[in-house]
Design a binder for these strands. Structure first.
Lengths: 181, 181
DNA sequence: GTGATCCCTGTCCGATCGGTCAGAACCGAC
DNA sequence: GTCGGTTCTGACCGATCGGACAGGGATCAC
């Protein structure tokens, strides 16, 4: 027995991500994760100090990328801000589909933020998507686009990945009234 | 004590809906609901045979309306189907904002369907939103529109209700490439 | 009065949860 | 060999979960 430490660690993260995405954070027990990864619950808690710690480690990468996108958006406005926000979000969302699903499932509970640096990022994203416009109609459209990208990336449409990416971006821009057509 | 039976029953439904929407189904215990409604857990279980029964009673109305919309869509296609699906969905979604949030939170877990008559309604909605087109791009756009409407209705934007409704419909139609502009 | 019925509750139950802990099993270094 | 450190586990713990159940009051008909 005794895999090379990091091996089981990664295996546990894999199992946890899949199970969290499928049954939610609350709906997945430590025992289930451990069994899926082929070890004991006690072994899981040797690698991770708590259930929350697993979540944090899972969501840290997407948190980092989100923060980067956030930073890129700060000094943009108008169409530039909207287009950058759309393409940036779609890219991140499609790269972290299951993570985003877990994040979405976890957000409503105002738990002590498992992933740092993304507090209020949703408001800033909506602001950028709206092209910094204070028009409430633009804000609603921005929310529609954001929600659409979120849900669509989390769902698994049986569609070619590149086509999905392109059409998500085109759709979102149409939603915002900034479509080229 | 001893309220008129139906009074406590309704009070419990109120509390449950609010708490389910706020903390999720799993994240809300029977004790919490009972305390919020000002009675004992045993009393709650006198009015409802189980936790699942509360969920069913909460989601039945929105299930009925969804089924009606579903029926109205069957013999429509093209722009008619898309427009009817958008306006119908927005109307239902805004009338049952918290219920929809609970439904969304509850869906991922493949629990024995608490609300009947809506199996596979999402696929049929996407089909209608896509105007019955088999084009995968239209299907992606349909999913974007559906997700946008879903999330936007569940979120609470501080926006005038009628403006919200109008702009959600306009945004969704733009997403589908059927905007008037 | 005395039942019968309805509403409500205190108390208990088994299951499951996240988490702890002492120690077994394995490892390379010596 | 054996020693020290790392990896892993069975057994256990307190808390909380959804739910069962017997009985206490209140209200009615008679």
């Amino acid at each position: 027995m005794a895999r090379s430490s990091t091996a089981l660690h990664g295996q546990l993260l894999d199992s946890a991500l899949r199970l969290f995405a499928q049954h939610g954070f609350r709906g997945t027990s430590l025992q289930t994760i451990a069994s899926d990864a082929g070890c004991s619950k006690a072994s899981l808690l040797y690698h991770f100090s708590s259930k929350e710690a697993i979540l944090t480690e899972l969501l840290t990468p997407v948190g980092r990328e989100a923060a980067e996108l956030d930073a890129r958006l700060t000094d943009l406005d108008g169409t530039d801000a909207a287009v950058t926000a759309v393409t940036g979000f779609v890219d991140v969302a499609l790269r972290f589909r299951r993570e985003l699903k877990v994040l979405f499932d976890t957000l409503p509970e105002s738990r002590p933020m498992a992933v740092s640096g993304i507090e209020g990022i949703d408001d800033r994203l909506v602001d950028a998507l709206a092209g910094r416009s204070p028009d409430p109609r633009q804000r609603v459209a921005a929310y529609m686009a954001l929600g659409g990208m979120f849900v669509t990336s989390a769902a698994d449409l049986h569609v070619n990945e590149e086509l999905l990416r392109e059409e998500m971006i085109r759709s979102a821009l149409r939603t915002l009234g900034r479509g080229s057509d």
